[in-house]
Design a protein around this nucleic acid. Sequence first.
DNA 1: CGGTCATGAAACATGTAAAGTTACATGAGG
DNA 2: CCTCATGTAACTTTACATGTTTCATGACCG
Lengths: 154, 154
Amino acid sequence: MRRDSKLSGVLHVLLHMAEIEGPVTSEFLAGVMQTNPVVVRRIMAGLRDRGYVHSEKGHGGGWRIACDFEAVTLRDIYDALGAPEIFAMGNRSEAPGCLVEQAVNAAMDESFREAEALLMAQLGRVTLATLSADFHARLAARGGDFNLETAHAV
Amino acid sequence: MRRDSKLSGVLHVLLHMAEIEGPVTSEFLAGVMQTNPVVVRRIMAGLRDRGYVHSEKGHGGGWRIACDFEAVTLRDIYDALGAPEIFAMGNRSEAPGCLVEQAVNAAMDESFREAEALLMAQLGRVTLATLSADFHARLAARGGDFNLETAHAV
DNA sequence: CGGTCATGAAACATGTAAAGTTACATGAGG
DNA sequence: CCTCATGTAACTTTACATGTTTCATGACCG
């Protein structure tokens, strides 16, 4: 395991769901993502709480998209995941008594804060519909002979 | 342990060194950073290779600043550390066969790439001299009664 | 020259967090 | 009432930054 890939993973799941009729089980999505159904439920939980997806138990149950792809941005999805830490780097201590460290923290914080703001703005500019359209463009470029069901087979 | 704090740590060390006459031992710097001398040598190795600092063995040995604080930016220091990973988030897989994942990766990569570019530009704008000046301003604001030697005591 | 102090570097230990796994409870159909 | 699917908690695994131990190398000092 290396970096947090929840955002990447959940977007992958959503776009696949959009291509499939009817509810999809965690187990199926786990196959798509080559992971465990519980991992899928975990990352979907935040989206469910925000109403972006809906889940149903029992026979014929599973996950269903419950939002307008035009209206939801990557920023929204990021927030639904609990706004996980963006940067792999940070200050050694947050509230240092040392004035040197205060100066270092202040300089680094400002740079990182601005980069974060830009990233959030970028993510807010991309909707799920944008992503889906990009996928369909790639599909068309391939002549549409792409099989979603087998694309993840090992 | 949480996030990579090498950049924060090495800047802290450099600013302290600037306030001290003559060479400084890893052991002393380790005290300042509340860590181990080996950790100090480890993060300083990259700076030594680039000539930003100089090290000497034996009696009276230690570390010495060997660069112009006006000329070296935080970006330079970041590079000297080996340009460690900036983001805590990333793609699940880098070269996916799945077209959906390709679309997801493309969108995320672009956002992250722009945020990274901005961050690098920000870091390139701040010199070690800027940081040092900021520290001295904080020092003056305190009336200059700040003792560097004891600022890290527990 | 031998003793001591310092860096250099490799090898190993530890702590933390993401991701993976197991287990069981809950509810929906059939 | 049996099976399927989600909901969740607890536990395991893995990766990695950091911490630690150890020894080699070289410099200075008496």
